[in-house]
Design a binder for these strands. Structure first.
Lengths: 229, 229
DNA sequence: GTATGATTCAAACAGTCGTATGAATCAAAC
DNA sequence: GTTTGATTCATACGACTGTTTGAATCATAC
């Protein structure tokens, strides 16, 4: 009984240090980027000793890896749950609605800002990944995203079967860009709109981004038709 | 006569050093980002002395400023030339075609990769700006882009007059993101398409990006209609 | 050739970075 | 209380960074 309580406290101390480092790192990486965030900034914010990073995570790259891995899993799980529900509703071979598929992909990351306090920095961090990650870290990210990328590509094909593989690739790339830019530079939207649009309203963002991406993808479907002439 | 030749040579020596620094900086910033590119990397590539950066540009921030300014002007001038031609063809109050307006915006930066050797690094650098620039440098970029932003916003409104200001803001933001992502991370497209799409083909990129953005914007126009119901 | 200002150079500085290390402290078991 | 391994700490290291500085060199005018 007494020992049990003490064991829990020990676990909490270790978890506390690691969690504080991860939380501080996630926030600072999101705000300033990976390379320009120093370990001393992270440890100062986490109120731990500099060497704790090396003790718990070996080096900075492994810390970045840990920051990425702890979010990608749950976000993608939520995406899969939403996709499961869509596919169940559509039946074995029934058509999927493109807007629903795109929503399933986007909602988990957009809502992370407000519905889950501990994940509020993730979207902005995600928006930075594509230009800032290199080498083995980019490979890790792509590897962890591969199942979701595969599933959503398949679902989009099912929703828009006349879209060519090439046009789908273009459209996916542009859509990822639109999303990433929104996530990383949402304040620019407030500037562009002269304060009339609130980038923090994630349901509005979802509605507009889904519409935009769906419209864009369908326009590329038209592209294919014209190319065939 | 003899003095004239020597004056030219002197001018060329000064221009040579500055140009080499700017060229090297532009290439390295595009490849690695602003913060992570060191002055020693730049001067090594430019084969000049480290202190030359301070002599000619005072400090790193002013060098970044100079790198940006030397490209934005000519790119936007080309955009304006293309817009002038469109507006001339359309007549004083005739309608503009959304695809043409978007082309006028995108072509100068997309073609910079191949049609103008000295500008081949600009697109990738441009793709990085939105997540990497802060403070006074971001303000400079926005200030230099303001005339073009204004003109193209007006032209898009003229092409699609039923688009609400809010939806236009969303659409512009997403479009900038799609473009920036493509410019900064074009190789990802090769990966997504399993090698079937060549991101270096700028005429193909233009065609697909224009279609995507036009489709996206028009879908947001539909959004407005539904919101009114 | 001398004077002058422009330009380049080598070196230095103070600061910062990620990593490493041995000592100190903590926590648990006996 | 002692032992042991885990964790934290303070410090140091080598490398790197942007900026500065005075000397050396260059280019031009007289």
């Amino acid at each position: 009984m007494n020992q049990t309580i003490e064991t829990v406290d020990q676990g909490n101390r270790i978890q506390d240090t690691k969690e504080r480092i991860l939380d501080a790192a996630e926030r600072l990486f999101a705000e300033n980027g990976f390379a320009t965030t120093s370990l001393r900034q992270i440890t100062a914010e986490a109120q731990v000793n500099l060497a704790a990073v090396n003790y718990h995570f070996q080096n900075k790259e492994s810390l970045i890896r840990a920051v990425l891995s702890r979010r990608i899993g749950p976000i993608n799980q939520r995406r899969f749950d939403l996709m499961d529900a869509l596919e169940f509703s559509a039946g074995e071979d029934g058509p999927l609605v493109l807007e629903d598929v795109l929503s399933a992909f986007l909602l988990p990351v957009l809502e992370a800002r407000t519905s889950c306090p501990e994940m509020r920095h993730w979207p902005r961090l995600l928006g930075r990944l594509y230009t800032e990650l290199h080498g083995s870290l980019m490979e890790l990210f792509q590897r962890e995203m591969a199942p979701a990328a595969q599933r959503f590509t398949t679902a989009i094909r099912r929703a828009e079967p006349t879209l060519s593989p090439e046009s789908l690739a273009w459209g996916l790339h542009f859509g990822i860009g639109a999303m990433a830019h929104f996530l990383a530079a949402g304040e620019l939207l407030r500037f562009i709109s002269r304060g009339t649009v609130d980038p923090e309203d994630h349901m509005e963002a979802l509605k507009h981004l889904v519409a935009y991406m769906a419209g864009g993808l369908r326009a590329l479907r038209t592209e294919k038709k014209e190319a065939a002439q």
